[in-house]
Write a protein that binds this DNA or RNA. Sequence first.
RNA 1: GCUGCUGUAGCUCAGUGGUAGAGCGCGUCAUUGGUAAUGACGAGGUCGGGAGUUCAAUCCUCCCCAGCAGCACCA
Length: 662
Amino acid sequence: MIRVTLPDGSAREVARGTTPADIAAAIGPGLAKAAIAARVDGELRDIMRPMEADAELALVTSRDETDALELARHDFAHILAEAVQALFPGTQITFGPSTDDGFYYDVMAPAKRGPFTMDDLPAIEEQMRAIIRADKPLRREVMARDALIATWQNAGESFKAEWAAELPEGEELSVYWSGNDWMDMCRGPHLASTGKLDAAAFKLTRVAGAYWRGDQNNPQLSRIYGTGWLNKKQLDAHLLRLEEAAKRDHRRLGQDMDLFHLQQEAHGSVFWHPNGYLIWRELEGYMRRAIDGAGYKEVKTPQVMDARQWEQSGHWGKYRANMFVIPDEVPNVDDEGPVISGDADWMALKPMNCPAHVLIFRQGIKSYRDLPLRIYENGCCHRNEPHGALHGLMRVRQFTQDDAHIFCREDQIVEEVQAFCALADRVYKEFGFTYSIKLALRPDQRFGSDADWDKAENELRDAVVRAGLATAEFGWEELPGEGAFYAPKLEWHLTDAIGRTWQVGTIQSDRVLPQRLDASYVGEDGARHRPVMLHRAIFGSYERFIGILIEHYAGRFPVWLAPVQAVVATITSEADGYAHDVTAKLKAAGIRVEADTRNEKINYKVREHSVAKVPHLLVVGMREAEEGKVAIRSLGSDGQRIMTLDEAIAMLSHEATPPDLR
RNA sequence: GCUGCUGUAGCUCAGUGGUAGAGCGCGUCAUUGGUAAUGACGAGGUCGGGAGUUCAAUCCUCCCCAGCAGCACCA
């Protein structure tokens, strides 16, 4: 007999080999029906898996949504693989986990067939539904490793065989049978049968290439993605959320609102239109005030530097493939012969600002009294990114960072990092973001000694602990292997208005570059010392941050950032004169305002400026003209407010004031 | 860079082996209207680029470029 303790503290003596399903049935028929899995000593298990020892048991039902979704998605993934193999014999399976909103499975299509495409998805979905309707039992079986490898080899499943062969020798591995005709190697757990899934609660969404084991050098598989839920209602709600997110897409809004465009002649670089650049200018002004107030000095450094400079910094060796290089010579102007000789010295567009800032630091002799020296630049950088990586404003080839480097003594690091935490906190809150902070630790390939890495990681950790931000509430987490090659990184991950996260801000504590570029200062003792260099950014890049803001606000910018803050719209042409007076007065008060005196009905104007997301529409007809008033209709509300022109100016001026100046 | 898909008017898209169409937008005219689309008329495209097949290519084939979805990458 074994002793099973239930969550309410009660205990039962049952025979060894009893399943959680048996216990659920013993408790009551309702629970027996509702239970889909079990937590045995905290571990999620199959409901049909016999219990072998004393344990704490909690039965899992669909009301335990996190567990239930995880189980359902994992099962959907298996059923997807089974369906693909049923429809396309010769397909090899590899593996398929659950994801945040569903599942995927990586498969290798039969050689003669070629990769799967979207056109294959409807048939696969139908086959999956058939498997669910068949209510096939999902049965766990333990196999010896060698027997399993042989099974995979006999079945022509070379990927599975490779995987199994790398698991520890002699280990017993679990497989799951779907009915008696399909099997996959899996740690589990699974639902008791395929019929426990809702056949209407999933949808295959796309198919794409993915490398076997995530390695570019390996064969590329077909990854079939699906979204999976507990019922159709949840699925529909999810699909609706996707639609809503698509409506916020910064690429679509950027076009609709005439903010910027991209075109193939300069792919990966942004053409900012007047409306978009107004947002940029506001952000630039905001950031300048912030860094001026925090004791930074702004600089501007060269766009092109000699390749030798990049060799010395280490970037030439490691990142040359992503740098734009330029021959330092006059192009051939003869009609014959190549434009470039090929034996000129190389220069490169700067991919980052750090070395240039070190060169500024190195001018003259620095004393410990000069530290911390905080050098800021709106630094325009170019990186030749892999073409498949480019994405709207989010990943571009030319971008401008709000980049600064703080040169300081070792004993100033924690204080500087803490001050940066405070600055970043203020900025993100003023834009309405919440955030979490993560610490990215040393990567496998890195410069610098382990002792320096220990120090650097501890300093960053310390600073966040002292700032009181290293708590679960702030999403504190350490990410092994994610740091840069020269320094660990603190990363700020913003959460936007619809719950998505974006990594933007960072601060990195670097002892490598000051050494490679020979930066030093004279200490109190009269000797030369190496400063530590803190690399830091809050927006990350203006391009990407504006892209995030567009999606965060869904294009409805707060007034201070809105390209057009107000439109004065006339009802009849008789009010044109008054409308121009109002517009002039608002302009004089610093409001970005336009007059709309076109020969259109007011309905048309209201609709057009609402669609354009103008925060305030000032409607004027003869009534307003005679009384010296305006009727204000604000974006997002249906009603109008009648007020005097002076009141309107006061209100708009207040709203148009950046948050740091209020 | 890899896999798949896509590229037709300013935008969103339809369409065909015999050199093209809609809606919105744009222009002109009429209309002067009170809070999410007034009506009529009109202009606008060598169908991403190049080569090939064909009597004939926007449509078929090949190459290139860009975009999209993922993967890989992201100092």
